[in-house]
Design a protein around this nucleic acid. Sequence first.
DNA 1: GACCAGGCACATC
DNA 2: GATGTGCATGGT
Length: 222
Amino acid sequence: MNSTERIRKFYSALHREYGPQNWWPAETRLECAAGAILTQNTSWRNVEKAIDALRDASMLSAEKLKTVPNEHLASLIRPCGYHNLKAARLKNFIEFLFRDYEGEMENMLGEDTETLRENLLSVNGIGEETADSILLYALGKPVFVVDNYTRRILCRHRMIPEGASYSSVRRLFIESLAPDAEVFGEYHALIVKTGKLHCRKTASCEGCPLEHDPHDRGINSF
DNA sequence: GACCAGGCACATC
DNA sequence: GATGTGCATGGT
């Protein structure tokens, strides 16, 4: 079985095991983008506290985020960690949103996806995963989000070599599947789901619904 | 108390 | 290009 077939088979197995995950849990495109920044290297549970605090403070709008002082913003998002850093990153994104898209996420929709991705990556604080999360979950673009779980799981199943680049893993998914944002979104969510349950740093893959392929040729098959 | 979580930028070699 | 480090809170 080649990599493409395994990528497809993995999706079937995960979807069969866990069902639809219905990501991303956000009410607006902006809230989704903010969540993508806040969740950097942080558990979603803590991000929820920060998002709730922003919502309680009526701060989940581009205009409010634009004018709120950094210190106040940082204090609101404190529960999700790196609050000073993430406050600055949120501000950078909002500044970019107003500079290039008149403060409206909807204005990003007409942009060519690759161009938009490059633009997002030019914002200090938005890396590849955050950019792809925004493209996929906030804007519905058919791109794949590669996170640590994705690498770890694929690595443990010998589908990618250790240290594989973000772009190579992303390409593997995009070239193996039809360009369907719905499926890409579910797939990434399912990977996080099974990652949390069976593929943490110190956990073995015990109970993982993804069977190891006894005939795979290891990292050379990638 | 150690380890981990839906990363990223920057310095250094 | 690869590798190391700072950023920080809260759950297990």
